[in-house]
Amino acid sequence: MPTSSADEAGRPMPHLLVDGLSAGYGGAPIVHEASARAGLGEIVTIVGPNGAGKSTFLKAVAGMIPALAGKVRLAGEDVTNMRANHLARRGLGYVPQVNDVFDTLTVADNLAMGGYLLKRNEIGERTEKVMEVFPALKRMLNRTASKLSGGERKMLAMARVLMLEPSLLVLDEPTSNLSADLSRVVLEEHVSRLGESGAAVLIVEQKAQAALAISDWAYVMAGGVIRISSAAGDLLARKDLAEVFLGRSTGDGEVPKAS
């Protein structure tokens, strides 16, 4: 039986509310009746072993694959199976794990695409703002995205999604392919800043400890099912779960325990 922390009641009002979502890629569902929520200003992480269905869950939330059952509500509105371009208009920003930038476009054009829904004169202003968050991008505006390093690419992907000031950010393994140091920067500086800016943030992350350290709430997914819903700090403190769900023994938890 799933174990939950008692303080679920203390969480903010849900901005994203996922109820009983099942999803897959055409065959049998990979995710079974998963429920999760994220409030404004809240960072919510889904952890779990490889192949647990975490990315599939995110893709269904972000409108990239169809939901086979269940409901997704964003700001109170039913957005189940709404196409991704309509979700973007409703404030959902999604950064996929791979193919997260437009390879053949320059950095500047990638940002312009991120601001596709903005008015022409707003794109310039917004680009300036986003570059205050990622000043390193200023030097590479005219470079083609395919020529960027892994870290620069991820920075561009995050900058691109911020162009529309989304109220819900869905990040699929923002630190995959990044070094331990860079992962820490991405999580501790950028992702946690997103939470502080008032957006709801939903992350799937392999580097579970590092992600939990900056998160408010956590779900553990295994076998396509949400097994645990808990405050992130409580989950970090639970020694019994570490081996199974967080993969501490695999050596990817370089960040010291937060509690």
Binding site: A62, G63, M64, R83, A84, N85, L87, A88, R89, L92, G93, Y94, P96, N99, D100, V101, F102, D103, T104, L105, D109, M113, G114, Y116, L117, R160, L164
Partner: peptide, 16 residues
């Protein structure tokens, strides 16, 4: 060009 390179990402930028 964005749709040609990465249609999924183009959609999530709001491109129909």
């Amino acid at each position: 060009r964005a749709t040609a390179t990465n249609p999924g990402l183009a959609r999530s930028c709001g491109v129909a």
